[in-house]
Computed example of a mutant assay.
Amino acid sequence: MRLSKFLSLSVAMSRNQAKFFIRKGRVSVDGDVITDPNSEIADTSLVIFDGKPISIAAYHYVLLHKPASYICKTKDTQYTSVLELVKNRSEDRYYYFANVLGAELTGLVLLSDDAHWTTRMQRKLSKKPCVYQAKSKNIISDDQLRQAKEACLVFSENQIGPKINIQEQDEKTLLLSMNQTHISEIKDILSSVDLDIETLHLEQIGRLSLGDLTEGDYLELAENEIKV
């Protein structure tokens, strides 16, 4: 691994910052000061930065059940970040979201401090069907269900990727299978047939689901445990 990459992964800094500090002579490898950021280091090398030994901490992968009124951002002036729910996260590492839910939505959120993994996962998730639960304040009539299905069929005919599918779960709840990018369109469709949706909840993406995870709780997973 290149020394600049090792330093940026070990200490919360960008790759350019790591190169700057290395060129300034603030990093030594196995007792020798190294000023070339592109120097390759062995897995067994002892790396010292500003007099302290450093190592790459294990990445953190989190599957979280997001409550309403939380936001998928690191900071927000109006809502609380979902990061506040992750109690043992490292404060000096930046977290990224593999999928994003609006403040009013609840359900499955994936996040990690591994930027490269998050980027790859975002691409994968964009191609996977999502299962949402839409709960209505009132009983859904047969006519409303029929109109919603017809509207989704018309919308899906003009789209590339997973089509929108609607099923009735109970008298007040619909199960919607669709691409996660269609969330605003499905809200418009349900509103157009006079369905007053109380909650919209993301239960599953591809093969990944919340299972029995309670609202506000989360699971810490290994990278190879996340199968979509």
Rank of each mutant, 00 (worst) to 15 (best):
M1N: 04
L3R: 09
F6G: 01
L9W: 14
L9I: 06
S14E: 06
I22D: 07
R26F: 05
V27Y: 02
G31M: 15
D32C: 14
D36Q: 13
S45W: 08
V47W: 05
F49V: 11
F49A: 08
G51Q: 09
A57G: 12
A57D: 08
V62D: 02
Y70H: 03
T77I: 04
S81L: 01
R89I: 15
D92M: 05
D92W: 06
Y95E: 12
Y95T: 02
F97G: 01
G102F: 01
T106C: 13
G107R: 07
S112V: 00
W117L: 01
R120F: 11
Q122R: 11
R123Y: 12
K124N: 15
L125C: 12
S126E: 06
K127C: 01
K137S: 12
N138P: 02
L145A: 13
F155G: 04
E157H: 13
Q159A: 12
G161T: 05
P162Q: 05
K163L: 03
E168H: 09
L174R: 02
L175S: 12
M178F: 13
Q180R: 10
I183H: 04
E185N: 15
K187T: 04
D188P: 00
L190D: 04
L195Q: 01
L195W: 06
D196M: 08
E198P: 04
T199R: 13
R207K: 11
L210V: 00
L210N: 00
G211F: 14
L213D: 01
D217I: 03
L221N: 08
A222G: 15
I226D: 00
K227P: 01
